[in-house]
Amino acid sequence: MRAATVKALNLAVEGEGNEMFEVIRKIWKTGVVTHKLPLREASQRYRGKLDIQPHKCKNCGACVAACPAGAINVAQKGQGQELSIAYTKCIFCGLCASVCKVQAVQMTNDYHLATKNKNDLIQVVRMPQ
């Protein structure tokens, strides 16, 4: 009768005790991995928002030409020029930064792009005369 009991118990758990133990051990080892807000900073090489320094800019237009997504535009505004970057179009490839001979355009690792208003995603930089 005892043998029958053992057999039945084995039938029920189908000898999966060992493997179940493995699973639990693994879970125990991993612990909770969810990161809570605020999230850590992005890594150094992360290609995030652009940093444009108007005073360095030579108005060569290389970045505008290079942008594969057409996200950078230069427009005549009153007396000076206005450079606008549409993050709605930008693919963060970094070509603009690499073609800029004077390092007026640089990539930062700022990844905060969430906004309630789409227009906030267009960064406008006024160029000095």
Partner: peptide
């Protein structure tokens, strides 16, 4: 998912993009 995330974060650290673009 945890392992994959490790790799994606590695990608981000060395190439600047989680899915290795650019």
């Amino acid at each position: 998912t945890i392992l994959r995330e490790e790799l994606l974060m590695l990608n981000e650290r060395i190439a600047g993009h989680r899915y290795l673009r650019g």
